[in-house]
Design a protein around this nucleic acid. Structure first.
Lengths: 247, 247
DNA sequence: AATTGTGAATACTTTCACAGCG
DNA sequence: CGCTGTGAAAGTATTCACAATT
Protein backbone atom coordinates (compact mmCIF):
# COMPACT_ATOMS: atom_id res chain seq x y z
CA UNK A 1 0.00 0.00 0.00
CA UNK A 2 1.06 3.55 -0.51
CA UNK A 3 1.19 4.16 3.22
CA UNK A 4 2.02 7.82 3.59
CA UNK A 5 0.18 8.74 0.44
CA UNK A 6 -0.42 12.45 0.74
CA UNK A 7 -3.37 14.19 -0.73
CA UNK A 8 -4.33 17.65 -1.74
CA UNK A 9 -6.44 19.50 0.71
CA UNK A 10 -9.70 17.85 -0.15
CA UNK A 11 -10.07 19.09 -3.69
CA UNK A 12 -11.42 22.44 -2.97
CA UNK A 13 -12.20 25.25 -5.30
CA UNK A 14 -13.97 27.60 -3.05
CA UNK A 15 -17.31 26.11 -3.85
CA UNK A 16 -16.16 24.62 -0.66
CA UNK A 17 -17.70 21.50 0.62
CA UNK A 18 -15.61 18.42 0.00
CA UNK A 19 -15.36 16.53 3.17
CA UNK A 20 -13.20 13.77 4.39
CA UNK A 21 -13.48 11.23 1.65
CA UNK A 22 -15.81 10.69 -1.24
CA UNK A 23 -19.07 9.50 0.23
CA UNK A 24 -22.22 10.71 -1.46
CA UNK A 25 -25.57 10.22 0.14
CA UNK A 26 -26.24 6.68 -0.97
CA UNK A 27 -24.10 5.04 1.64
CA UNK A 28 -24.44 2.77 4.60
CA UNK A 29 -25.49 4.73 7.59
CA UNK A 30 -25.23 8.47 7.40
CA UNK A 31 -23.11 10.68 5.24
CA UNK A 32 -24.70 14.00 4.63
CA UNK A 33 -24.05 15.66 1.30
CA UNK A 34 -21.17 18.08 1.68
CA UNK A 35 -23.32 20.96 0.55
CA UNK A 36 -25.76 20.17 3.31
CA UNK A 37 -23.07 19.97 5.96
CA UNK A 38 -21.87 23.39 4.93
CA UNK A 39 -25.32 24.83 5.52
CA UNK A 40 -26.06 23.28 8.89
CA UNK A 41 -24.24 26.03 10.79
CA UNK A 42 -26.37 28.58 8.99
CA UNK A 43 -29.52 26.86 10.12
CA UNK A 44 -28.16 26.62 13.59
CA UNK A 45 -27.56 30.33 13.70
CA UNK A 46 -31.04 31.05 12.41
CA UNK A 47 -32.53 28.73 15.01
CA UNK A 48 -30.56 30.45 17.74
CA UNK A 49 -32.12 33.73 16.76
CA UNK A 50 -35.59 32.25 16.64
CA UNK A 51 -35.13 30.61 20.01
CA UNK A 52 -33.88 33.90 21.40
CA UNK A 53 -37.00 35.58 20.09
CA UNK A 54 -39.10 33.02 21.88
CA UNK A 55 -40.37 31.26 18.78
CA UNK A 56 -41.55 27.73 19.49
CA UNK A 57 -42.05 26.30 16.03
CA UNK A 58 -41.10 27.35 12.52
CA UNK A 59 -42.24 26.33 9.10
CA UNK A 60 -39.70 25.46 6.44
CA UNK A 61 -40.68 28.66 4.68
CA UNK A 62 -39.91 30.86 7.65
CA UNK A 63 -36.69 29.11 8.57
CA UNK A 64 -35.53 29.10 4.96
CA UNK A 65 -36.19 32.81 4.82
CA UNK A 66 -34.14 33.39 7.94
CA UNK A 67 -31.30 31.25 6.66
CA UNK A 68 -31.30 32.68 3.17
CA UNK A 69 -32.03 29.48 1.28
CA UNK A 70 -35.03 28.11 -0.58
CA UNK A 71 -37.70 26.25 1.39
CA UNK A 72 -37.20 23.19 -0.78
CA UNK A 73 -33.52 23.12 -0.06
CA UNK A 74 -34.06 23.52 3.62
CA UNK A 75 -36.47 20.62 3.70
CA UNK A 76 -34.13 18.43 1.68
CA UNK A 77 -31.27 19.24 3.98
CA UNK A 78 -33.23 18.58 7.12
CA UNK A 79 -34.74 15.40 5.80
CA UNK A 80 -31.29 13.99 5.11
CA UNK A 81 -30.71 14.43 8.80
CA UNK A 82 -33.86 12.73 9.94
CA UNK A 83 -37.56 13.45 10.25
CA UNK A 84 -37.71 16.06 12.91
CA UNK A 85 -40.63 18.08 11.60
CA UNK A 86 -44.35 17.68 12.06
CA UNK A 87 -46.48 17.76 8.92
CA UNK A 88 -49.02 20.47 8.95
CA UNK A 89 -47.16 22.24 11.71
CA UNK A 90 -43.47 22.79 11.17
CA UNK A 91 -40.32 22.20 13.18
CA UNK A 92 -39.90 22.51 16.90
CA UNK A 93 -37.19 25.11 17.28
CA UNK A 94 -35.61 23.70 20.42
CA UNK A 95 -35.54 20.15 19.19
CA UNK A 96 -34.27 20.98 15.73
CA UNK A 97 -31.58 23.09 17.27
CA UNK A 98 -30.53 20.19 19.42
CA UNK A 99 -30.53 17.75 16.53
CA UNK A 100 -28.48 19.92 14.22
CA UNK A 101 -26.17 20.89 17.03
CA UNK A 102 -25.53 17.27 17.77
CA UNK A 103 -24.83 16.52 14.14
CA UNK A 104 -22.42 19.40 13.85
CA UNK A 105 -20.63 18.31 16.97
CA UNK A 106 -21.66 21.02 19.34
CA UNK A 107 -22.29 19.81 22.81
CA UNK A 108 -18.68 19.11 23.36
CA UNK A 109 -16.54 22.22 23.34
CA UNK A 110 -13.76 21.83 20.81
CA UNK A 111 -10.31 22.98 21.80
CA UNK A 112 -8.54 24.89 19.03
CA UNK A 113 -4.96 26.07 18.57
CA UNK A 114 -4.03 29.09 16.53
CA UNK A 115 -0.63 29.22 14.86
CA UNK A 116 0.68 32.57 13.69
CA UNK A 117 -0.23 35.70 15.60
CA UNK A 118 0.12 38.53 13.17
CA UNK A 119 -2.80 40.87 12.63
CA UNK A 120 -5.17 38.19 11.56
CA UNK A 121 -4.14 35.57 14.09
CA UNK A 122 -4.48 38.07 16.87
CA UNK A 123 -7.92 39.10 15.68
CA UNK A 124 -8.93 35.46 15.59
CA UNK A 125 -7.61 34.90 19.11
CA UNK A 126 -9.80 37.75 20.27
CA UNK A 127 -12.80 36.73 18.22
CA UNK A 128 -15.70 36.05 20.52
CA UNK A 129 -17.65 34.24 17.84
CA UNK A 130 -15.61 31.10 18.33
CA UNK A 131 -16.54 30.75 21.96
CA UNK A 132 -20.21 31.14 21.30
CA UNK A 133 -20.11 28.53 18.55
CA UNK A 134 -18.64 25.85 20.74
CA UNK A 135 -14.92 26.39 20.36
CA UNK A 136 -12.32 27.39 22.85
CA UNK A 137 -8.95 28.73 21.85
CA UNK A 138 -6.58 26.79 24.08
CA UNK A 139 -3.27 27.70 22.57
CA UNK A 140 -1.46 30.41 20.65
CA UNK A 141 1.74 29.50 18.93
CA UNK A 142 4.20 31.64 17.00
CA UNK A 143 7.83 31.06 16.18
CA UNK A 144 8.70 34.75 16.43
CA UNK A 145 10.69 35.17 19.69
CA UNK A 146 9.45 38.72 19.96
CA UNK A 147 5.90 37.47 20.31
CA UNK A 148 6.49 34.54 22.62
CA UNK A 149 5.31 35.42 26.09
CA UNK A 150 2.96 38.15 24.96
CA UNK A 151 -0.57 37.56 26.14
CA UNK A 152 -3.55 37.82 23.86
CA UNK A 153 -6.94 37.78 25.44
CA UNK A 154 -5.37 36.30 28.55
CA UNK A 155 -3.59 33.48 26.78
CA UNK A 156 0.19 33.55 26.43
CA UNK A 157 1.83 33.00 23.06
CA UNK A 158 4.16 30.04 23.19
CA UNK A 159 6.96 28.78 21.02
CA UNK A 160 6.48 26.29 18.21
CA UNK A 161 8.41 23.82 20.29
CA UNK A 162 5.64 23.77 22.85
CA UNK A 163 3.14 22.46 20.35
CA UNK A 164 3.54 18.83 21.32
CA UNK A 165 3.02 19.56 24.94
CA UNK A 166 0.11 21.86 24.18
CA UNK A 167 -1.72 19.40 21.96
CA UNK A 168 -1.07 16.61 24.39
CA UNK A 169 -2.47 18.52 27.32
CA UNK A 170 -5.50 19.98 25.60
CA UNK A 171 -6.33 17.21 23.17
CA UNK A 172 -6.87 19.75 20.42
CA UNK A 173 -7.35 18.24 16.97
CA UNK A 174 -8.39 21.43 15.21
CA UNK A 175 -5.75 23.93 14.18
CA UNK A 176 -6.01 27.38 12.66
CA UNK A 177 -3.14 28.54 10.47
CA UNK A 178 -2.68 32.28 10.22
CA UNK A 179 0.98 32.35 9.29
CA UNK A 180 2.51 33.83 6.15
CA UNK A 181 2.18 31.59 3.10
CA UNK A 182 5.82 30.49 3.27
CA UNK A 183 5.45 28.98 6.70
CA UNK A 184 2.06 27.35 6.20
CA UNK A 185 3.14 23.98 4.85
CA UNK A 186 5.81 23.46 7.50
CA UNK A 187 3.38 24.37 10.25
CA UNK A 188 0.80 22.06 8.75
CA UNK A 189 3.21 19.15 8.68
CA UNK A 190 4.04 19.82 12.28
CA UNK A 191 0.42 19.98 13.36
CA UNK A 192 -0.54 16.90 11.44
CA UNK A 193 2.42 15.02 12.81
CA UNK A 194 1.20 15.79 16.30
CA UNK A 195 -2.33 14.57 15.71
CA UNK A 196 -4.25 17.52 14.33
CA UNK A 197 -6.79 16.26 11.80
CA UNK A 198 -8.73 19.40 10.91
CA UNK A 199 -7.17 22.61 9.69
CA UNK A 200 -8.59 26.01 8.94
CA UNK A 201 -6.09 27.70 6.68
CA UNK A 202 -5.95 31.46 6.30
CA UNK A 203 -2.58 31.47 4.60
CA UNK A 204 -2.70 31.99 0.86
CA UNK A 205 -1.05 28.67 0.16
CA UNK A 206 -2.14 25.29 -1.11
CA UNK A 207 -1.59 22.76 1.63
CA UNK A 208 -0.77 19.13 1.10
CA UNK A 209 -1.94 16.83 3.86
CA UNK A 210 -2.20 13.09 4.44
CA UNK A 211 -5.45 11.40 3.58
CA UNK A 212 -7.98 11.76 6.34
CA UNK A 213 -6.97 15.26 7.32
CA UNK A 214 -9.55 17.86 6.41
CA UNK A 215 -8.50 21.32 5.34
CA UNK A 216 -10.70 24.31 4.75
CA UNK A 217 -9.23 27.42 3.28
CA UNK A 218 -10.25 31.02 3.72
CA UNK A 219 -8.39 33.40 1.47
CA UNK A 220 -9.43 36.99 1.95
CA UNK A 221 -7.69 38.34 -1.12
CA UNK A 222 -9.30 35.62 -3.15
CA UNK A 223 -12.76 36.52 -1.97
CA UNK A 224 -12.23 40.09 -3.05
CA UNK A 225 -10.94 38.95 -6.41
CA UNK A 226 -14.10 37.02 -7.02
CA UNK A 227 -16.09 40.16 -6.28
CA UNK A 228 -13.80 42.14 -8.54
CA UNK A 229 -14.51 39.72 -11.33
CA UNK A 230 -18.20 40.44 -11.05
CA UNK A 231 -17.57 44.17 -11.06
CA UNK A 232 -15.34 43.73 -14.03
CA UNK A 233 -17.99 41.88 -15.97
CA UNK A 234 -20.54 44.44 -14.99
CA UNK A 235 -18.36 47.08 -16.59
CA UNK A 236 -17.63 45.13 -19.78
CA UNK A 237 -20.44 42.64 -20.29
CA UNK A 238 -20.51 41.61 -23.94
CA UNK A 239 -16.77 41.98 -24.12
CA UNK A 240 -16.36 44.61 -26.83
CA UNK A 241 -12.72 44.28 -27.87
CA UNK A 242 -11.19 45.16 -24.52
CA UNK A 243 -8.40 47.42 -23.29
CA UNK A 244 -8.51 51.19 -23.50
CA UNK A 245 -8.17 51.57 -27.27
CA UNK A 246 -11.41 50.08 -28.48
CA UNK A 247 -11.69 51.82 -31.85
CA UNK B 1 -42.19 43.34 -13.01
CA UNK B 2 -41.46 43.46 -9.34
CA UNK B 3 -39.25 46.52 -9.63
CA UNK B 4 -37.37 46.78 -6.38
CA UNK B 5 -37.56 43.05 -5.83
CA UNK B 6 -34.92 42.26 -3.28
CA UNK B 7 -33.05 39.04 -3.24
CA UNK B 8 -31.16 36.94 -0.82
CA UNK B 9 -27.46 37.23 -1.01
CA UNK B 10 -26.96 35.11 -4.09
CA UNK B 11 -28.23 31.86 -2.69
CA UNK B 12 -25.15 30.79 -1.01
CA UNK B 13 -24.57 27.81 1.17
CA UNK B 14 -20.90 27.99 1.54
CA UNK B 15 -20.32 25.89 -1.47
CA UNK B 16 -19.91 29.43 -2.57
CA UNK B 17 -20.00 30.39 -6.14
CA UNK B 18 -23.26 31.84 -7.29
CA UNK B 19 -22.55 34.99 -9.10
CA UNK B 20 -24.57 37.90 -10.21
CA UNK B 21 -27.47 36.27 -11.91
CA UNK B 22 -28.17 32.82 -13.20
CA UNK B 23 -26.01 32.43 -16.28
CA UNK B 24 -24.58 29.02 -16.94
CA UNK B 25 -21.96 28.45 -19.55
CA UNK B 26 -24.13 28.12 -22.60
CA UNK B 27 -24.72 31.80 -23.13
CA UNK B 28 -24.01 34.47 -25.67
CA UNK B 29 -20.56 35.84 -25.15
CA UNK B 30 -18.83 34.85 -21.98
CA UNK B 31 -20.15 33.76 -18.64
CA UNK B 32 -17.74 31.54 -16.87
CA UNK B 33 -19.16 28.87 -14.60
CA UNK B 34 -19.22 30.17 -11.06
CA UNK B 35 -17.04 27.37 -9.85
CA UNK B 36 -14.44 28.34 -12.41
CA UNK B 37 -14.51 31.99 -11.41
CA UNK B 38 -13.91 30.97 -7.84
CA UNK B 39 -10.77 29.12 -8.86
CA UNK B 40 -9.19 31.75 -11.08
CA UNK B 41 -7.59 33.56 -8.15
CA UNK B 42 -5.98 30.29 -7.13
CA UNK B 43 -4.46 29.85 -10.53
CA UNK B 44 -3.31 33.42 -10.49
CA UNK B 45 -1.52 32.89 -7.23
CA UNK B 46 0.14 29.74 -8.51
CA UNK B 47 1.23 31.55 -11.67
CA UNK B 48 2.68 34.36 -9.60
CA UNK B 49 4.84 31.87 -7.79
CA UNK B 50 5.94 30.20 -10.99
CA UNK B 51 6.76 33.55 -12.56
CA UNK B 52 8.70 34.49 -9.47
CA UNK B 53 10.69 31.29 -9.79
CA UNK B 54 11.51 32.18 -13.35
CA UNK B 55 9.41 29.50 -14.98
CA UNK B 56 8.51 30.29 -18.57
CA UNK B 57 5.96 27.65 -19.41
CA UNK B 58 3.91 25.15 -17.44
CA UNK B 59 1.96 22.08 -18.34
CA UNK B 60 -1.56 21.64 -17.08
CA UNK B 61 -0.26 18.88 -14.85
CA UNK B 62 2.29 21.07 -13.17
CA UNK B 63 0.01 24.05 -12.76
CA UNK B 64 -2.80 21.87 -11.48
CA UNK B 65 -0.41 20.41 -8.94
CA UNK B 66 0.58 23.87 -7.78
CA UNK B 67 -3.01 25.02 -7.56
CA UNK B 68 -4.29 21.90 -5.85
CA UNK B 69 -6.81 20.83 -8.48
CA UNK B 70 -6.96 18.04 -11.02
CA UNK B 71 -5.29 18.57 -14.40
CA UNK B 72 -8.59 17.92 -16.16
CA UNK B 73 -10.31 20.59 -14.14
CA UNK B 74 -7.58 23.07 -14.76
CA UNK B 75 -7.79 22.53 -18.50
CA UNK B 76 -11.56 22.81 -18.49
CA UNK B 77 -11.39 26.01 -16.52
CA UNK B 78 -8.77 27.55 -18.74
CA UNK B 79 -10.46 26.49 -21.93
CA UNK B 80 -13.64 28.22 -20.87
CA UNK B 81 -11.55 31.34 -20.78
CA UNK B 82 -10.00 30.93 -24.18
CA UNK B 83 -7.30 28.92 -25.89
CA UNK B 84 -4.17 30.25 -24.36
CA UNK B 85 -2.12 27.07 -24.31
CA UNK B 86 0.05 25.41 -26.91
CA UNK B 87 -0.52 21.73 -27.56
CA UNK B 88 2.47 19.63 -26.94
CA UNK B 89 4.05 22.43 -24.94
CA UNK B 90 1.90 23.93 -22.22
CA UNK B 91 0.95 27.42 -21.14
CA UNK B 92 3.11 30.50 -21.26
CA UNK B 93 3.23 31.65 -17.66
CA UNK B 94 3.39 35.37 -18.36
CA UNK B 95 0.61 35.34 -20.91
CA UNK B 96 -1.70 33.13 -18.92
CA UNK B 97 -1.15 35.30 -15.91
CA UNK B 98 -2.10 38.32 -17.93
CA UNK B 99 -5.20 36.68 -19.37
CA UNK B 100 -6.53 35.45 -16.05
CA UNK B 101 -5.62 38.72 -14.39
CA UNK B 102 -7.61 40.58 -16.99
CA UNK B 103 -10.58 38.31 -16.54
CA UNK B 104 -10.52 38.69 -12.79
CA UNK B 105 -10.31 42.42 -13.12
CA UNK B 106 -6.78 43.01 -12.00
CA UNK B 107 -5.01 45.71 -13.89
CA UNK B 108 -7.16 48.34 -12.36
CA UNK B 109 -6.71 48.75 -8.64
CA UNK B 110 -10.03 48.40 -6.91
CA UNK B 111 -10.80 50.82 -4.10
CA UNK B 112 -12.39 49.15 -1.09
CA UNK B 113 -14.07 50.47 2.04
CA UNK B 114 -14.14 48.61 5.32
CA UNK B 115 -17.00 49.17 7.71
CA UNK B 116 -16.57 48.11 11.30
CA UNK B 117 -13.15 48.31 12.92
CA UNK B 118 -13.21 45.87 15.76
CA UNK B 119 -10.56 43.20 15.95
CA UNK B 120 -11.32 41.72 12.61
CA UNK B 121 -11.89 44.96 10.73
CA UNK B 122 -8.63 46.32 12.05
CA UNK B 123 -6.78 43.19 11.01
CA UNK B 124 -8.28 43.48 7.57
CA UNK B 125 -7.28 47.12 7.33
CA UNK B 126 -3.72 46.09 8.08
CA UNK B 127 -3.78 43.06 5.84
CA UNK B 128 -1.12 43.44 3.19
CA UNK B 129 -2.60 40.69 1.03
CA UNK B 130 -5.24 43.03 -0.30
CA UNK B 131 -2.75 45.46 -1.74
CA UNK B 132 -0.80 42.77 -3.51
CA UNK B 133 -3.96 41.34 -5.03
CA UNK B 134 -5.02 44.56 -6.63
CA UNK B 135 -7.08 46.22 -3.94
CA UNK B 136 -6.55 49.40 -2.01
CA UNK B 137 -8.33 50.14 1.23
CA UNK B 138 -9.47 53.71 0.72
CA UNK B 139 -11.74 54.15 3.66
CA UNK B 140 -12.42 52.97 7.19
CA UNK B 141 -15.80 53.64 8.66
CA UNK B 142 -17.17 52.95 12.12
CA UNK B 143 -20.08 54.48 13.98
CA UNK B 144 -18.35 54.22 17.34
CA UNK B 145 -17.33 57.80 18.33
CA UNK B 146 -14.46 56.39 20.33
CA UNK B 147 -12.92 54.99 17.17
CA UNK B 148 -13.53 57.91 14.83
CA UNK B 149 -10.30 59.74 14.25
CA UNK B 150 -8.08 56.83 15.17
CA UNK B 151 -5.67 55.95 12.41
CA UNK B 152 -5.17 52.41 11.24
CA UNK B 153 -2.29 51.76 8.92
CA UNK B 154 -2.18 55.47 8.16
CA UNK B 155 -5.85 55.79 7.32
CA UNK B 156 -8.20 57.63 9.67
CA UNK B 157 -11.44 56.03 10.76
CA UNK B 158 -14.37 58.21 9.81
CA UNK B 159 -17.97 58.41 10.83
CA UNK B 160 -20.76 56.55 9.06
CA UNK B 161 -22.03 59.89 7.88
CA UNK B 162 -18.94 60.36 5.79
CA UNK B 163 -19.72 57.32 3.69
CA UNK B 164 -21.40 59.24 0.91
CA UNK B 165 -18.54 61.63 0.57
CA UNK B 166 -16.03 58.81 0.79
CA UNK B 167 -17.67 56.67 -1.86
CA UNK B 168 -18.15 59.66 -4.11
CA UNK B 169 -14.52 60.70 -3.90
CA UNK B 170 -12.99 57.26 -4.27
CA UNK B 171 -15.51 55.60 -6.53
CA UNK B 172 -15.41 52.47 -4.38
CA UNK B 173 -18.03 49.88 -5.27
CA UNK B 174 -16.68 47.11 -3.10
CA UNK B 175 -17.41 47.12 0.61
CA UNK B 176 -16.24 44.90 3.43
CA UNK B 177 -18.54 44.48 6.40
CA UNK B 178 -16.87 43.58 9.67
CA UNK B 179 -19.48 44.87 12.06
CA UNK B 180 -21.41 42.87 14.65
CA UNK B 181 -24.28 40.88 13.19
CA UNK B 182 -26.90 43.32 14.47
CA UNK B 183 -25.50 46.20 12.47
CA UNK B 184 -24.75 44.33 9.28
CA UNK B 185 -28.07 44.74 7.47
CA UNK B 186 -28.33 48.45 8.20
CA UNK B 187 -24.78 49.04 7.02
CA UNK B 188 -25.47 46.98 3.93
CA UNK B 189 -28.54 49.02 3.07
CA UNK B 190 -26.51 52.17 3.49
CA UNK B 191 -23.68 50.93 1.30
CA UNK B 192 -25.99 49.67 -1.39
CA UNK B 193 -27.95 52.89 -1.34
CA UNK B 194 -24.75 54.77 -2.03
CA UNK B 195 -23.73 52.65 -4.98
CA UNK B 196 -21.78 49.74 -3.58
CA UNK B 197 -22.53 46.64 -5.65
CA UNK B 198 -20.18 44.03 -4.17
CA UNK B 199 -20.00 43.14 -0.53
CA UNK B 200 -17.72 40.87 1.42
CA UNK B 201 -19.57 40.06 4.62
CA UNK B 202 -17.76 38.87 7.73
CA UNK B 203 -20.70 39.42 10.02
CA UNK B 204 -22.57 36.27 10.98
CA UNK B 205 -25.80 37.50 9.44
CA UNK B 206 -27.81 36.75 6.35
CA UNK B 207 -27.93 39.87 4.23
CA UNK B 208 -30.75 40.85 1.94
CA UNK B 209 -29.72 42.95 -1.01
CA UNK B 210 -31.35 44.22 -4.20
CA UNK B 211 -30.90 42.15 -7.31
CA UNK B 212 -27.62 42.83 -8.99
CA UNK B 213 -25.65 43.27 -5.81
CA UNK B 214 -23.23 40.44 -5.13
CA UNK B 215 -22.54 39.30 -1.61
CA UNK B 216 -19.94 36.83 -0.47
CA UNK B 217 -19.92 35.70 3.10
CA UNK B 218 -17.06 34.55 5.25
CA UNK B 219 -18.11 33.20 8.61
CA UNK B 220 -15.24 32.07 10.73
CA UNK B 221 -17.31 30.29 13.33
CA UNK B 222 -19.11 28.47 10.58
CA UNK B 223 -15.91 27.22 9.03
CA UNK B 224 -14.86 25.76 12.33
CA UNK B 225 -18.24 24.14 12.75
CA UNK B 226 -17.85 22.37 9.46
CA UNK B 227 -14.51 21.04 10.63
CA UNK B 228 -16.05 20.02 13.92
CA UNK B 229 -18.66 18.07 12.04
CA UNK B 230 -15.96 16.02 10.39
CA UNK B 231 -14.24 15.41 13.68
CA UNK B 232 -17.54 14.44 15.16
CA UNK B 233 -18.18 11.90 12.44
CA UNK B 234 -14.69 10.59 12.78
CA UNK B 235 -15.45 9.83 16.39
CA UNK B 236 -18.85 8.26 15.77
CA UNK B 237 -18.90 6.93 12.22
CA UNK B 238 -21.56 4.24 11.83
CA UNK B 239 -23.78 5.95 14.34
CA UNK B 240 -24.22 3.22 16.93
CA UNK B 241 -27.31 4.34 18.79
CA UNK B 242 -25.82 7.62 19.94
CA UNK B 243 -25.41 9.29 23.30
CA UNK B 244 -23.52 7.69 26.17
CA UNK B 245 -25.95 4.92 26.97
CA UNK B 246 -25.78 2.69 23.92
CA UNK B 247 -27.09 -0.56 25.34
C1' DA C 1 5.81 12.62 -28.61
C1' DA C 2 3.71 15.50 -25.70
C1' DT C 3 0.08 18.13 -24.17
C1' DT C 4 -3.98 20.93 -24.99
C1' DG C 5 -9.00 21.39 -25.78
C1' DT C 6 -13.36 19.25 -25.49
C1' DG C 7 -17.43 16.05 -26.19
C1' DA C 8 -19.40 12.51 -23.55
C1' DA C 9 -20.02 10.25 -19.15
C1' DT C 10 -20.52 10.60 -14.38
C1' DA C 11 -21.41 12.74 -10.09
C1' DC C 12 -23.39 16.06 -7.29
C1' DT C 13 -26.81 19.79 -6.16
C1' DT C 14 -30.94 22.20 -6.49
C1' DT C 15 -35.61 22.70 -7.74
C1' DC C 16 -40.16 20.91 -8.66
C1' DA C 17 -44.33 19.06 -7.48
C1' DC C 18 -47.09 16.21 -5.03
C1' DA C 19 -48.15 12.22 -2.03
C1' DG C 20 -48.51 11.52 2.80
C1' DC C 21 -49.52 12.71 7.33
C1' DG C 22 -50.88 15.24 11.35
C1' DC D 1 -56.21 22.16 5.30
C1' DG D 2 -51.24 22.94 5.84
C1' DC D 3 -46.81 21.70 5.73
C1' DT D 4 -43.33 18.12 5.69
C1' DG D 5 -40.75 14.53 3.30
C1' DT D 6 -39.18 12.81 -0.97
C1' DG D 7 -39.01 10.77 -5.63
C1' DA D 8 -38.23 12.60 -10.13
C1' DA D 9 -36.54 16.31 -13.17
C1' DA D 10 -33.40 19.90 -14.14
C1' DG D 11 -29.28 22.15 -13.67
C1' DT D 12 -24.12 22.37 -12.43
C1' DA D 13 -19.76 20.61 -11.80
C1' DT D 14 -16.13 17.22 -12.32
C1' DT D 15 -13.82 13.52 -14.50
C1' DC D 16 -12.74 10.64 -18.46
C1' DA D 17 -10.63 9.72 -22.53
C1' DC D 18 -9.25 10.86 -26.92
C1' DA D 19 -8.90 13.57 -31.18
C1' DA D 20 -6.48 17.66 -32.55
C1' DT D 21 -2.35 20.19 -32.90
C1' DT D 22 2.23 21.74 -32.39
Amino acid sequence: MSSAETLREARDGTPQSPGTQRSAEPFTAKGLPDATVARLPVYLRALDQLAGAGTGTVSSDALAEAAGVSPAQLRKDLSSLGSYGTRGVGYDVANLRFQIGREVGSGSEWPVVIVGLGNLGTALANYSGFRSRGFRVVGLVDPDPALVGVSVHGLPITDLGDLEDLLGRTGAVIGVIATPAEAAQAVTDRLVGLGVTSILNFAPAVLTVPEGVVVRKVDLGQELQILAHHEHRRAAPGRPADGPGFR
